[in-house]
Amino acid sequence: MASKQKDMRRLDLAIPYVDPPKNKDDADMSGAMSSTMPMAAMFTRNRMIGWVSFVFSLQSWLGESPEQKKNASTPAYMSVLMSLMALVVTYFPIFMPPPAGQSNPVATPSPSP
């Protein structure tokens, strides 16, 4: 059982926490990631990268501060639209598969006589 001693801490000596000021030169990594990940998903046609880019860009759009909105070169909803386009590109072959004759672009050599 805890002993019943008087609390010796003094509230008048407590110093409240204050966030350090943000540096203006810090790079916006979330903006850079949310704009490059959809391109990586489209180039590699990787669906997992497409979904990660969609979730990441949606989080960066919803967590955008007014200062980031003011300083951004493009609006954050454009990265969400870009990631949706990446998802469309990665799932496009399921709905419209390539023609059967063009599935193998490498020409096979004909047998020699």
Results as ranks from 00 to 15, higher is better:
S3F: 05
S3E: 14
Q5K: 13
Q5D: 13
D7E: 10
D7G: 02
M8C: 10
R9G: 12
R9E: 14
R9D: 15
L11N: 13
L11I: 15
D12W: 11
L13Y: 13
A14K: 15
I15V: 12
V18T: 06
V18A: 12
D19C: 11
P21T: 02
P21C: 01
N23S: 04
K24M: 11
D26V: 08
D26L: 13
D28T: 03
D28H: 05
M29I: 06
M29E: 00
M29K: 01
S30F: 07
S30C: 09
S30H: 10
S30Q: 09
G31H: 04
G31N: 01
M33F: 05
M33C: 06
M33R: 02
S35K: 03
S35M: 09
T36Y: 04
T36V: 08
M37E: 00
M37I: 05
M39L: 13
A40H: 03
A40R: 01
A41Y: 00
M42P: 00
M42W: 00
F43W: 06
T44Q: 02
T44D: 03
T44W: 02
T44G: 03
N46M: 00
R47K: 08
G50F: 04
V52Y: 09
V52P: 05
S53H: 00
S53E: 07
F54Q: 06
V55R: 15
V55L: 15
F56A: 07
F56H: 11
F56V: 05
S57D: 05
S57W: 06
L58Y: 09
L58E: 11
Q59G: 09
S60Y: 13
S60M: 04
W61E: 12
G63C: 07
E64I: 08
E64A: 01
S65H: 00
P66Y: 04
E67I: 05
E67M: 01
E67V: 03
E67D: 09
K69R: 04
K70D: 14
A72V: 05
A72Y: 02
T74C: 12
T74S: 10
P75M: 14
A76Y: 12
A76L: 13
M78K: 05
M78N: 02
S79L: 13
V80W: 05
V80F: 01
L81M: 09
L81Y: 06
M82P: 01
S83V: 01
L84A: 03
L84W: 00
L84C: 08
M85Y: 03
L87F: 00
L87S: 00
V88I: 09
T90R: 01
T90C: 02
Y91I: 08
F92V: 08
F92A: 11
P93E: 05
I94W: 08
I94M: 09
I94P: 02
P97W: 14
P98C: 04
P98T: 10
G101F: 07
G101T: 11
Q102C: 04
P105E: 04
S110M: 14
P111N: 15
P111L: 14
P111K: 15
S112G: 14
S112E: 15
P113D: 15
P113C: 13
